[in-house]
């Protein structure tokens, strides 16, 4: 299956992503097999508030890339219901014009409880697409509010999509949303007010830009008419060149690798301690807590003690 996927077989790629997304026992083996083949694709993140036109833009971006003969993989994340864990994944509706094109692979993911705008395994999905030969991988995040900024860790280029009529500019300035952008896209430029948003954002960039390095460009687009898409494409390419050739870019890559290792460690710890806790719970520990025969701190230490053996053996399940 892994070899089939690496040679570009769509069904095999789709299966691998499912395995990794479901965190099956095979997922580490899969990712280790992918690893040597990764690092070639340009990973582009598209983020912005709900309904700002991310999916429509992605569809247009795919069109431009395909005209240049590049293959494209897309991972589109929509929110999972916190109540049922289920999700209605509808980003794909806007990208249906590329259905049937063998150079385009689109995959929808539910955020599955993650709060950073992606799901826990979105990055792995992107790496699989990279390893399996896609020239460009585009990740569409959940429509962001103010704290969903995981995309900045995994994308080479982050596009933040803004639209006219979004409310006042303090909203944009709050939290860390402005800071994660490598470039701003003012979409729905066919509508009234886009110029004003662009001017405000440009002013803000000018006021807060520190030192030298990359200055965030501001591009106006209309995913409805296709206006501005070629310029957007050139700007994104320009940013990739910058990332691949500058000190800043090298720093970013190092940070990503560091984060990757931390993330794997965190996940292993969580898995092992969760299963140790499950076992412990069966010993009527909750009743003991209720009767004040023990306290939560002591129980926590017992859980960690019993997990120690599993850490050493590298036990995963």
């Amino acid at each position: 299956m892994i070899d089939k996927a690496l040679s570009g077989d769509v069904r095999a790629i789709a299966r691998l992503i499912s395995e990794v997304e479901s965190e099956t026992p095979r997922s580490e083996e899969i990712m280790r097999a992918m690893y040597p083949h990764t690092g070639r694709a340009h990973i582009i993140g598209v983020t912005g508030s709900p309904g700002s036109g991310k999916s429509s833009l992605v569809s247009k971006m795919i069109g431009t890339l395909r005209r240049q003969g590049k293959t494209v993989g897309v991972i589109a994340v929509d929110p999972s219901s916190p109540f049922s864990g289920g999700a209605i994944l509808a980003d794909r509706i806007r990208m249906q014009e590329h259905s049937g094109d063998p150079g385009v692979y689109i995959r929808s993911m539910g955020s599955r409880g993650s709060l950073g705008g992606l799901s826990k395994t979105t990055y792995e999905g992107a790496l699989i697409l990279d390893a399996c030969g896609k020239d460009v991988v585009i990740i569409e995040t959940v429509g962001v509010g103010q704290s969903e900024i995981d995309i900045v860790r995994i994308a080479d280029t982050v596009c933040l999509v803004l639209v006219p009529g979004m409310g006042d500019d303090m909203q944009i300035m709050k939290a860390g949303i402005m800071e994660i952008a490598d470039l701003f896209v003012i979409n729905k430029a066919d509508r009234e007010g886009a110029d004003k948003v662009a001017a405000e954002v440009r002013l803000m960039i000018k006021m807060f830009h520190t030192g030298d390095g990359w200055i965030q460009p501001v591009k106006m687009t209309s995913a409805a008419t296709g206006a501005g898409l070629d310029e957007l494409h050139d700007t994104i390419e320009g940013h990739l060149k910058h990332v691949r050739s500058s000190e800043e870019g090298a720093e970013r890559l190092k940070k990503r690798l560091q984060w990757e290792v931390e993330e794997i460690v965190r996940r292993r710890i969580a898995k092992i301690t969760e299963s140790a806790w499950r076992e412990r719970r069966e010993e009527r520990v909750i009743e003991k807590l209720l009767n004040k025969e023990t306290d939560p701190y002591r129980v926590a230490q017992e859980v960690l003690d019993s997990a120690m053996g599993d850490f050493r053996s590298g036990q995963l399940l």
Binding site: V10, R11, G86, I88, L89, A90, S99, G100, S108, G110
Partner: peptide
């Protein structure tokens, strides 16, 4: 209803061709 039962539903909207539906099913596994 499927979402509320904990499933992930890829909703593709109206006016799909047969090829689009089959393609979607395969890519989305």
């Amino acid at each position: 209803a499927l979402r509320d039962a904990g499933m992930e539903v890829i909703y593709t909207g109206l006016r799909q061709t047969v090829d689009q539906i089959v393609d979607t099913a395969i890519q989305e596994d």
